[in-house]
Design a protein around this nucleic acid. Structure first.
Lengths: 224, 224, 224, 224
DNA sequence: TATGAATGAGCATTCATTCAT
DNA sequence: GATGAATGAATGCTCATTCAT
């Protein structure tokens, strides 16, 4: 719940949208509950489109059609396709961060925390009609400005992961950086082969984490 | 298997010896008898373009310009962009298979074989001006016919990997499928974060494989 | 004539005292009684925009942003972009007429009057951050209704010029019409090559007028 | 005739178009006579459009329609609207230069040369369905790259004018620069008020030049 | 084999304007 | 007076592809 508030705070910063020159937004309390309305619906609609086809192949026309509006009208809400994309992306990252935070909040054992985080990550990634997947995996983002914003959002999530990984006790000689990147790769690569109907994202996550978990880990340091 | 190697042997010869933009047309008579050297040059040129920008963002114009020809002329060699891409991709897979085959041919220990394969894989992927990387990682291939052909080529390589993985002795409870997919994910994900100038592809590969290698593996089950 | 001066007196007061982007809304009560000060501010803001970029390239969005308002809101003040432009243009012509009238009011010799008028004209045209220049020189006004209104405003000023020119004694064989158009052309063409920092508009005007002034003119026909 | 050759030489340099990487253009002699065909027709069609409506208001669609082709097809000939425009513009300048050169080639008296040049200039400017007029007078060219090319072409013509003006004997105290700019202004300003059907461009030019011609000029140096 | 010319569909974006609230 | 949302038409441009020469 508190994380949810944090989320929208973050989003406000990330989006930093249009207000031309405009007056004081002093009565913001009023809108925070169920307003924002149209814009956040657009955000979700766009997310679904980007997820389905990737950034390049999703045209503003597609999004406009799905939103029930003419193409030009989208520019009332976002100044460019890039801006819309990074807003969608930032929202996705927020969501991921919230999911991981909530999933780990009552767990103390570092390995269990990490596993719970990965389960949440993969559920978020593969569920919801894959809304977040293509967005996060999209590698067609190659132009300067957009790439920078994209990397920034991505970094926010990776920072969280780093914290979780650093808390874990690794086998001698294993570098934490490679452990983190390897684990992330193993998990995100599911996007490449996952098919709905097989094992659940949760099961998959647990099995992948298990690959990296030192064998006797929970046993290795038995409490006295 | 040997036929595949033979095929790619031929192809490699053509691929390896190509000047960047346009061969001097002086000794054309010599190679014209063999099997259409011009076509292989086009293949190599196209590979470089696809690698640099991905499938979608590489236009036939780009390829034609790099090949020193007008766009329409490309259609004398390939009937469509898809067809050209598949050819490029198949050549890339051939190359990968050859590299892995050669890297493992004198090694007997299964874990060592797997490690050697991963090293070769990553060297191939990250080296050569990244010629193969974007092609293999490209997820913008989503249309029916193209996707099918693409999956087929990809399958040829994954079959090889499966063989290598199946030979390895895994920790109890670890499913070979997840092991294989997790390892492949960890390794291919490097495309996302690798930066030339840091550790070498070889070092990276070894460290990533180590993550998956049971700790005392060669020792744990000593032959009687 | 005097009514025109009176009108533009009023207008000038409004035009002259305007801060760039948005007046502080603190003392709004004071001027609201007069005659809609807000509208004159808009007029000035729009003038600056038209001056900077010409009619076509100035969008209602540009003007609205500079005025501190959303585009749609402009239509409370003017029914169309054309109408707004005409108003801006009329104000510019008023200003020009006033400047010329004031500059010539105490001069009796016709040639001196004409020279003074040209100096005032050019100062008005090239000074004031070029606020009037592009407006007067803009030849992108080509559509029917707008063009007509535009020609009308322009005519008001040219009538004044005609009066000044007709008072002047020309060389034998010189037609007054060509003299007037040639002089106007020479002077307005400065918009094409004038660069702030070189000679002043006043100097330029005097030198250009000198080109047209019969050599020994004041001397040539000495009063008996 | 020799000037005509010079013209196309110049144009080749100014246009510097598309040839992707391409083969040797060794047999150019063949095309210089009546070839070039399609491209130069396009150039003329575009000139007419630009002349009628100015740069901004002429859309590529307009030009394409007038050329009898779909919009995208224009990009086979020119890479951008800007490039097309500067080609049109350069051709116009070439034409102007040729016209002036031819008009003055057998005249020796400097004032007569200058007058003949102005007549040719104005005929070129106001004749030919005004093909060149709007192009030369267009002040909507404001963006960096395009503006630079535009200024360059314009400069070529102004250099020629300078030569003609410098040869002329001016009244004492008249600076040649102001004389040149004033004359050019007077003449080009005709675009603002010229109406076909009245006096001919030739008559207008002579009368305008007369305004600047020192009164007793032909008398000033009486033949013995 | 290659060129030169064209197609037809699609793209992101901009613009003046309208109108219910 | 002003906003927020939308319209509908236009704009410059790109792309894979075709085909007569």
């Amino acid at each position: 719940m508190s994380s949810s508030v944090a989320r929208s705070e973050r989003r406000k910063k990330a989006l930093a949208t249009v207000p031309v020159d405009k007056a004081d937004p002093s009565n913001e309390g009023a809108e925070s509950l169920a307003e924002g309305g149209r814009k956040s619906i657009l955000l979700e609609v766009a997310a679904r489109q980007f997820a389905k086809k990737g950034f390049d192949k999703t045209s503003m026309r597609d999004i406009a059609a799905a939103f029930g509006v003419l193409p030009g009208s989208l520019y009332h809400h976002f100044n460019s396709k890039d801006e819309l994309f990074i807003a969608v992306y930032a929202a996705g990252v927020d969501r991921m961060i919230d999911a991981v935070a909530k999933a780990t909040e009552n767990i103390v054992d570092p390995w269990d925390r990490l596993e719970a985080a990965c389960v949440a990550h993969l559920q978020e990634l593969l569920g919801h009609e894959n809304v977040l997947a293509a967005v996060l995996a999209d590698n067609s983002i190659s132009d300067g400005e957009l790439r920078k914003a994209w990397a920034h959002e991505r970094g926010r999530y990776e920072d969280l992961l780093r914290t979780l990984v650093d808390a874990v006790e690794l086998n001698a000689g294993v570098e934490s950086r490679y452990f983190r990147l390897g684990l992330l790769g193993a998990i995100n690569w599911t996007l490449t082969w996952y098919q709905a109907g097989g094992e659940s994202p949760e099961q998959i996550a647990r099995k992948l984490v298990a690959l990296f978990r030192p064998l006797g880990n929970p046993v290795q340091f038995p409490p006295l």
